[in-house]
Design a protein around this nucleic acid. Structure first.
Length: 418
RNA sequence: CGGAGCGUGGUGUAACGGCUAACAUUCCUGUUUUGGGAACAGGCGACUCCGGGUUCGAAUCCCGGCGCUCCGACCA
């Protein structure tokens, strides 16, 4: 799109009420807008990144057999009473509201209850299982203290997948697949090298759950990392038993701050028993479905990438989730030769399916470059009087700062963006 | 929820209890400039978060709200 049509603009200074680096940069660059504490709107650039992240996650979820759907945000009190999760004394992050007739409703903070209840309509036989259903849905959590920009909000988009399996074996197989898929996702969005499968509390149906923890000082979790095995243990569960289970020696572990970007959890029959989700096995006897839940906070993931992959000049998006593939920058000349060439190049790139943010604004070079660095699109292409004279375009890599010049044809032929 | 700090044009800051609330930036006009947030000139934009109180006089002091940030607690 043409940057002259983008309604957001960059700022030199971040609002003083933001300290978190991710929020500062994302606000300065025009990706997000703060509505109130812990509640952020997605602006055009931010929305594009969020959708790219969704795309990456969706691809992996579909690959392991996930079926995408969409549950409701409004929640039926009765369902949650059945699992004993309605009471504010038990779940203290509910946002609740009322109908005109005073009946209470909740705004969903997770979706085990409604999906499990829904599945009772469709699951009768072992032939119906397994089922893997997922969604991208806005979650509401009444956090006592929102913090860290978009990394801990009160309203955020989350991918949550729920698995419904016949038995433990089937569940375990899927659980491992999901773990791999999660690894793929974090690799693809560029934080794989510092994201660790982390052993955490498992609840009543399994010994451990697994968190995906990404190292960053902005995180609020403390984990103990084993570089050698590329795994970690959440401080909450660090004890001799865990160390023994994993064959690790405490002295080999390094304490680090990290943010939980994903989490997979075995639920056993916790919900299927409460909500009566059963199937008939081959012998005709009734059994409870074995469940698991698998979450990724997509907004938090976006904030984490912003936090980690940025530098002093601004954001640095990996190609996989950048708002655009290329930032085409026109430096105007008197005869408008450059603008004509840039206009044409923009159209040509778009025709090839390359996503381009075209800075066609009538501004000086310095301001355009500063904006470009701040927004962080991975490849910057400059067309100016100079490049026209040499019959090339100037290509700069946002991450490395490397610059090279190639002809337009060469650029299009060699541009690999996936 | 405990503790600390802070609310002044869109943004960042300033202003002893006392003139028309100042400066920078953004934005608008014009001149000039055109490869790293240029320069000059002019201009728009604020009931100083809200409500009370003290005072001849309040952005400034006091009380009560509301909001924001940070530390802690919490975090399926």
């Amino acid at each position: 799109m043409k940057q002259s049509q983008l309604f957001t603009k960059t700022r030199k200074e971040a609002p003083k009420d933001e300290v978190a680096k991710n929020a500062e940069l994302l606000i300065r660059a025009g990706f997000i807008h703060k509505e109130m504490a812990g509640v952020y709107s997605m602006l055009p650039l931010g929305f594009r990144v969020l959708n790219k992240i969704i795309g990456v996650i969706r691809k992996e979820m579909n690959a392991i057999g996930g079926q995408e759907m969409s549950l409701t945000a409004l929640q039926d009190k009765n369902l949650w009473e059945a699992t004993n999760r309605w009471d504010d004394g038990i779940v203290d992050i509910w946002f609740k509201t009322k109908l005109k007739n005073e009946a209470e409703l909740g705004l969903g903070f997770t979706h085990e209850e409604p999906l499990t209840a829904l599945m009772t309509e469709y699951v009768d036989s072992y032939r119906d299982l397994p089922i893997y259903a997922y969604q991208f849905q806005t979650k509401f959590r009444n956090e006592t203290r929102a913090k860290s920009g978009i990394m801990r909000g009160r309203e955020f988009l989350m991918k949550d997948l729920y698995s419904f399996s016949k038995d433990e074996k089937e569940h375990e197989e899927f659980y491992e697949k999901a773990k791999k898929a999660y690894g793929n996702i974090f690799n693809e969005v560029g934080i794989g090298d510092r994201t660790y499968v982390t052993f955490a509390s498992g609840g009543s149906f399994s010994k451990y759950s697994h968190e995906f923890q990404t190292l960053t000082e902005a995180g609020e979790d403390t984990i103990f990392v084993s570089e050698e095995k590329k795994i970690a243990i959440n401080k909450e569960v660090l004890n001799d038993e865990v160390l023994g289970d994993l064959g690790l020696d405490k002295s080999s572990l390094v304490e680090k701050k990290a943010v939980e970007v994903g989490n997979i959890f075995s639920l056993g029959t916790r919900f299927s028993e409460s909500l009566n989700l059963k199937y008939k096995d081959e012998t005709g006897s009734e059994k409870f479905v074995i469940m698991g839940s698998y979450g990724i906070g997509s907004g938090r993931l976006m904030g984490t990438v912003a936090e980690i992959l940025s530098d002093e000049k601004g954001l640095v998006w990996p190609m996989s989730i950048a708002p655009f593939h290329i930032h085409l920058i026109l430096l105007n000349d008197k005869e408008n030769k450059a603008s004509k060439a840039a206009d044409e190049f923009y159209v040509e790139l778009a025709r090839k399916g390359i996503e381009v943010l075209y800075d066609d604004r009538d501004l000086r070079a310095g301001e355009k470059f500063a904006d470009s660095d701040l927004i962080g699109i991975p490849v910057r292409v400059v067309i100016s009087e100079k490049t026209i004279a040499e019959n090339v375009v100037e290509v700069k890599d946002r991450k490395t700062g490397e610059v090279h010049k190639v002809s337009q044809e060469e650029f299009i032929r060699t541009f690999g963006f996936k």
